[in-house]
Amino acid sequence: MLKRALAIITLLIIGYWLAQGLAGVPFGEDRMLVAQYYLDHVKEQTGAVNTVTAVVVNYRGFDTLGEVTVLFIASTGVGALLWRKKRERTAKTEGSIVLTTGTRLLAPFIMLFGAYIFIHGHLTPGGGFPGGATIATAFLLLYMAFTVYEIPHKTFEKVEGAVGMAYVLVGLIGLAIGGYFLYDWIWQDWGFGVDNVGRLLSGGFIPVIYTIIGLKVGTELSGIIDNMLKEEVSE
């Protein structure tokens, strides 16, 4: 009881302190400094319409490489923590008929929608991270509906490694052509899709990198799901 009272008092102090701090940050006011620069120049500098994804992939692409690395380390950590000599799926009850039929019907479309999200990252809300998570949802559905289903491990491992290297490779090609890592040579040098801003074939290397990120996030989250749903079996 005392512990709970102490916790509530601590929370009240922290809440008051947060509210005090935020009182100096009025809601809904224009405070943009560097963001205004991005908004003014995003179309001619990156060819993308969606400023958020232009910031994520183009202006701050190196940070995004770091985020992908964090994701990779988390998925490796799950794999290492749950590693056993022999692990199999031990679920005994098959999903209900609603779940199995619905999964059979919906899984391809969910994957298609995920691919749509990451390919159109420079035009519509979304991008590689939500698109990859959507693809992983389809695999989660398959795992829940069918007791024997497993992802194709070999393919997934190869795809995961290949797209991870592809991201660095895109950056290194930029380094060779333009002089700095992740230089957007498709837009700056080739001028690919200059008359096409706001349509699919534009945006420099944003769709390329977002395809890479989408595949990476999708395979990694599916790998996490696979690791967490399997259990050790004695030989």
Binding site: V34, A35, Y38, L39, T51, V52, T53, A54, V55, V56, R60, T64, E67, V70, L71, A74, S75, G77, V78, L81, G127, F129, P130, G132, A133, V217, E220, L221, I224, M228
Partner: peptide, 20 residues
Amino acid sequence: PIPQALVLTAIVIGVATTAM
């Protein structure tokens, strides 16, 4: 756009760290 770009990646990273 900058806070949105931050949160966009933070959500997926959050999922991965929660899994861990």
